[in-house]
Amino acid sequence: MAVQATIGTMTRSQTQRRRRIVQTAAALAVRGGVEAMQMRSVAERAGVALGTLYRYFPSKMDLVVAVVTEELDLLEGGIVRRPPTADTPEGRALDVLLRATRGLMREPELADALVRSLIMAEVKIELDVRITDLVWRVATGHLVATGSTDTDEATADVDEIDRGGVEYVLAGALTSVWIFELVEVLKGRRDVDEVERRLYVAAERLLASF
């Protein structure tokens, strides 16, 4: 069975090749959604052999997750550089989710890829946790706003997260509401303004005890 290449053990050229593959897949997703991210098409456009692609990403879902993870990295990096300034936990959490919504709506096909990956059983927990961690950190004031691009510095406080605590559970509930609202936007049943109003109410109620 093919083994996915581990980022931490890659050479510089391997890291660059992996990034090129992910960027190529993202570009295809922007134009045609997850369906357009066919492994053979990605390999051809990225200029790598199909076998090489499978060494980095054993399945299409692994590739989808990599694309979505890069989008989350960009979101988190932007929030670390320019943290929410609201005075309340619910205001800061709402800022995070609205930035994510607006960013995704600029590329609705990528938003569709995110939602699909979130609801897939084999990857849901990892990505849900990633988003909930960010909401919790911002809402509770645990975000490290160093201004540095060093990932270790920017996420140095992750070990402080109590994922069994009441506040974390409530942040997770708010994240679940956001995912549902994002689905409604993608289906054309909500606009972003309505989602903002609904998320505000949910954040106000769920995070009132923070």
Rank of each mutant, 00 (worst) to 15 (best):
V166H: 12
G164L: 05
E160T: 13
V166G: 09
V166D: 15
E167L: 06
D112R: 15
V166I: 11
A171F: 09
D112C: 05
D157S: 07
G103N: 01
G165A: 09
G103A: 01
E107C: 03
G164C: 08
G147H: 12
T155N: 11
A154W: 01
A139I: 01
A145N: 04
V169R: 13
W136S: 01
A171N: 04
V129A: 09
H142K: 08
D162T: 01
T146H: 04
L110C: 07
V129L: 10
T155L: 12
T149Y: 14
V169I: 13
V144I: 06
L170T: 11
L134N: 02
A111G: 13
E107P: 03
A113E: 09
A121Y: 10
G141T: 04
D162P: 01
E167C: 05
A121L: 08
A154N: 14
D112L: 14
V123C: 04
D112V: 09
E126M: 12
D128S: 10
V123W: 08
W136N: 00
V158W: 13
E167H: 13
E122V: 08
E126W: 08
E107G: 07
E153V: 14
L118N: 05
G164T: 03
D152H: 05
E153P: 09
S148R: 05
R137Q: 11
L104K: 03
A154C: 10
R163E: 03
D152V: 15
V144G: 00
R106A: 13
D150I: 00
R116P: 05
S117L: 08
Y168G: 08
G141H: 07
A145M: 02
D128V: 03
V123N: 06
A171Q: 04
G141L: 08
G147T: 11
I131Q: 05
E126G: 10
G141D: 06
S117M: 10
E126T: 14
E122T: 13
V123F: 08
L114I: 02
V135A: 03
E122D: 11
M120G: 10
D128G: 09
L114A: 00
